[in-house]
Nucleic acid binder design. Structure first.
Length: 861
RNA sequence: GCGGGCGUGGUGAAAUUGGUAGACACAAGGGACUUAAAAUCCCUCGACUUCGGUCAUGCCGGUUCAAGUCCGGCCGCCCGCACCA
């Protein structure tokens, strides 16, 4: 008997699938559709283990749904714009486009060697003008629809990547790619008005039942809705206040505490601060001090709360006789609310600390239950809880919520404020000062302003002849590209040299897959049929980036009439990461797994090159910097795709981290061989494919068939609920049962054939190549990929007799075997006949007899 | 600080609506086959035990005939957000 040759077999079936185009799909309204999508890869060079896991999970679902009769779309493409391509250009002098397309070619081959059930005819690369031209068109449509804005604002500047970053791309004060400390710069940028949809994006989350709770929570927090009020404080000192600043607008969530106000504070980059600093060098110094401060968690923790008294005074909105000082404070953020606050020291810890430091009033206004107004004081701890308002005139006696409502009512009545809803979400800044991205289709003219590129001039294509020899944006350095005529007045004008954030391309690619060769972004008929994506699979790292942008972009596309869905992804699954042990030499230098070997007969490792001791570290996410990566190419080469896929699914639940181990992949390899041997050794004696089912089965055959049909039911449930590791366990159990079965008759042989065929069908989505081969060996002339998922025979899911555990007082004492239809009395008799049960009962009377059908017996004495 | 999740053998993990805790696998140990190795096959494998049992799902308590699962209170770990007014 031959050993299974994975390489030959896998190539054989991959070619056959491809020749017959079995994974090509068409819009077909007569069939139920199912859209399976994994987050498309960035063409970085080679696939990594994370890709293997991602695409294995997706492929199992795609093949399973296909076997369940769905018209499955399962496309693939390339998120092909981005900085690594430019960095390669800078480091190696290769053009970003060439580098990208070469990487795509390599990675496409690698993915194809995994045997994924992908419709490759739908492949797209976002860096191709045939893709990004539609994005430019849509952007101009968004502009017309009022969803785009150009404004000067403070933006996040990454000094290493030399570009602006969106808020979502700043992680703990650092650039998400470069890790560099982000600086604040004031620049003119294009913004997509994601905030127009803030409430809708929030509401939509409630409908996403098949999204992980965690991701929904993260988006909820990111959007950050809060209810409160804007309050207008009149600025006094008409002689001193800067022109145009007669009112200070403040945002608060606690208008009920207005009578506890003792100061106002504004941000260092607030317009009023700007105006005041012009004639005030001390304030200029203070502002400079504030701007120096980092925005990382650590920097914020350490930073002292500092204020600068501007000397200005404002009037309390409820009482003209009360005046409050105005400070510039380093803890007030221009990005949130109005960039100005009022401070109520008794009700906010930070305000209290500030008040103590600058010797300001502390007026308690909320009385906790059980405290007396006369004796209640605030020392060093602010009271933030619920209670009864006091010291607050017309608000006295109300609770906090009623106080808020009443205060807002009064503010509006007096024209001193307004109830509002505030979001943390900012508009999405999409301008990037980089070359390898989609050009923003706008022309800047001195007299006409920002003018959209006319339709007939689209797409605006990236120039090929660019240089990367100096810092900054190559498009800006290009000698001619940016010089154009104004489409409106014909005078010399300048092309926009910024390109789009690469998250733009990934915000609509799932729709493009529906009509990948259309001269429109996509055909209405196709997206109406295919969208939304039924199952999306990817990493959690995009919880508030890509996944939020795509939800917004879908709404924007709906608004300009391109499609009719709100939510792009009905189901979302976030997979865990792949981890591996880490190794270091005695100097602490990281070692890769192939630089070390096991010490003979002992635990522990030495270096292959030199034999020096190796320190073994914890298993952490595979990363190049820690050198704990395993190249999937080596694994696919050594074991084949089926084994690699099987291991990816077997050890851990797919949403948890998976530890890569040598013994784990070896185990999967042993199973592949075992499955092969099992069929080879059985083939000869099997009855013909057409043989009809025998009238009767032996006891052993019936037992096998019961196991078999229970496996079908269990597997189906496990696959449906993404418990692939449990599904794999069921495959092992079934394989064990089939291996142990020794057929004695023709009927037994028939049962064996049935078992083998179903085993092969159940393994199909996980190990598509070997199962296709075995399917053929079992005498089938059709392809396994075109074969339906097996159905469990209901009659075999219940046993004739069953074993019931018997407890006495909740402790297991015996197991009894009774007929499946035995009544309570028969079961009781059988249970009481057990000597162990008798002993445990110790001659006492039965107080209660509990029988849970098909489960357990408990005798209480 | 706010929010989410998790805690089960040497390891990864199973366990339906509360119903035999540890399925399945990895590692380890023993045995068979072999000149030998690899491969394969068989057995053992939570702890303690006077071999009757007893104790075990982070800790303490509660509900229940019955708790890994439900409730209350702790402890620990992981993740996300955070000077958000």
């Amino acid at each position: 008997m031959s050993r299974y040759n994975a390489k030959e077999t896998e190539v054989k079936w991959q070619s056959l699938w491809s020749e017959r185009d079995v994974f090509a799909t068409q819009t077909d309204k007569s069939k139920p559709k199912y859209y399976v999508l994994e987050m498309f890869p960035y063409p970085s060079g080679r696939i990594h283990m994370g890709h293997v896991r991602n695409y294995t999970i997706g492929d199992v679902i795609a093949r399973y749904k296909r076997a369940r009769g769905f018209n499955v779309i399962h496309p693939m493409g390339w998120d092909a714009f981005g900085l690594p391509a430019e960095n390669a250009a800078i480091e190696r002098g290769v053009h970003p486009g060439k580098w990208t397309y070469e990487n795509i070619a390599i990675m496409r081959d690698q993915l194809k060697s995994m045997g994924l059930s992908i419709d490759w005819s739908r492949e797209v690369a976002t860096c191709h003008p045939q893709y990004y031209r539609h994005e430019q068109k849509m952007f101009l449509e968004f502009l017309k629809a009022g969803l785009v804005e150009r404004k000067e604002s403070w933006v996040n500047w990454d000094p290493v990547d030399n570009t602006v970053l969106a808020n979502e791309q700043v992680v703990d004060g650092k650039g998400w790619r470069s890790g560099a400390d982000v600086e604040k710069r004031k620049l003119s940028q294009w913004f997509l008005k994601i905030t127009d949809f803030a409430d809708d994006l929030l509401d939509g989350l409630k409908t996403l039942e098949r999204w992980p709770e965690k991701v929904r929570t993260m988006q909820n927090n990111w959007i950050g809705r809060s209810e409160g009020a804007r309050v207008f404080f009149k600025i006094r000192d008409e002689d001193h206040r800067p022109a145009g600043h007669d009112t200070l607008e403040v945002y608060t969530t606690r208008p009920d505490t207005l009578f506890g106000a003792s100061f106002c504070a504004i941000a260092a980059n607030h317009p009023l601060t700007d105006a005041l600093s012009a004639s005030n060098p001390e304030l200029q110094d203070f502002i400079a001090e504030c701007n120096k401060m980092g925005t990382s968690e650590e920097a914020i923790e350490k930073a002292e709360k500092l204020g600068f008294n501007t000397g200005l005074k404002v009037t309390h909105p409820f009482d003209e006789t009360i005046e409050l000082p105005v400070y510039v404070a380093n803890f007030v953020l221009m990005d949130y609310g109005t960039g100005a606050i009022f401070g109520c020291p008794s009700g906010d810890q930070r305000d209290l600390d500030f008040a103590r430091k600058y010797d300001l009033n502390v007026i308690p206004v909320v009385l906790p239950a059980g405290e007396e107004a006369e004796s209640f004081t605030i020392e060093n701890e602010a009271f933030t809880g619920d209670g009864t308002l006091f010291n607050s005139r017309f608000l006295d006696g109300l609770d906090v919520d009623a106080g808020k409502r009443k205060a807002i009512e009064k503010l509006e009545e007096l024209g001193q404020g307004k109830g509002t809803v505030q979001f943390r979400l900012r508009d999405w800044g999409v301008s990037r000062q980089r070359y390898w991205g989609c050009p923003i289709p706008v022309i800047h003219c001195e007299s006409c302003g920002a003018v959209p590129v006319p339709d007939e001039q689209l797409p605006v294509e990236l120039p090929e002849d660019v240089t990367f020899d100096k810092p900054g944006n190559p498009l800006d350095h290009h000698p001619t590209w940016k010089n154009v005529e104004c489409p409106s007045c014909g005078k010399p004008a300048r092309r926009e040299t910024d390109t789009f954030d690469t998250f733009m391309e990934s915000s609509w690619y799932f729709a493009r897959y529906c009509s990948p060769r259309s001269d429109q972004p996509f055909e209405r008929e196709d997206v109406d049929y295919w969208l939304p994506v039924d199952q999306y699979i990817g990493g959690i790292e995009h919880a508030v980036l890509h996944l939020l942008y795509a939800r917004f972009y879908t709404r924007a596309m709906k608004k300009i009439g391109l499609l009719s869905v709100d939510e792009p992804f009905r189901g979302l699954f976030t997979q865990g990461m792949i981890c591996h042990e880490t190794y270091q030499d005695s100097q602490g230098k990281w070692l890769s797994p192939d630089q070390i070997e096991k010490i003979d007969g002992q635990d522990g490792y030495i270096t292959i090159d030199g034999g020096s001791p190796v320190k073994v570290g914890p298993s952490i996410k595979m990363s190049k910097s820690k050198k704990n990566t395993i190249d999937p190419a080596d694994i696919l080469q050594a074991y084949g795709s089926d084994t690699a896929r099987f291991f990816m699914l077997s050890d851990s639940p797919p949403d948890r981290d998976l530890e890569w181990t040598e013994s784990g992949i070896e185990g999967a390899w042993r199973f592949t061989q075992r499955l092969w041997r099992l069929v080879q050794t059985s083939l000869e004696a099997l009855p013909a494919k057409e043989a009809s089912a025998p009238a009767e089965f032996s006891e052993a055959a019936t037992a096998l068939r019961r196991t078999l049909h229970k496996s079908i039911a269990g597997m189906t449930e496990n696959v449906e609920s993404f418990r692939f590791n449990a599904a794999v366990a069921k495959i092992y159990e079934l394989t064990n049962s089939v291996s142990q079965f020794k057929p004695q008759s023709d009927a037994d042989q028939w049962a064996l054939r049935e078992s083998l065929e179903i085993l092969v069908r159940l393994c199909g989505p996980m190990m598509p190549h070997i199962t296709e081969e075995l399917w053929q060996q079992l005498g089938n002339t059709t392809l396994l990929v075109d074969t339906s998922w097996p159905e469990a025979d209901e009659s075999l899911l219940v046993d004739d007799s069953l074993t019931l555990p018997v407890q006495v007082n909740g402790k297991l004492r015996a197991n009894i075997t009774v007929a499946a239809n035995a009544d309570e009395n028969a079961i009781k008799t059988a249970a009481l006949a057990e000597p162990n049960v008798q002993r445990a009962m110790d001659g006492k009377d039965i107080r209660k007899f509990i029988l849970v059908k098909n489960r357990i017996v408990n005798i209480v004495v």
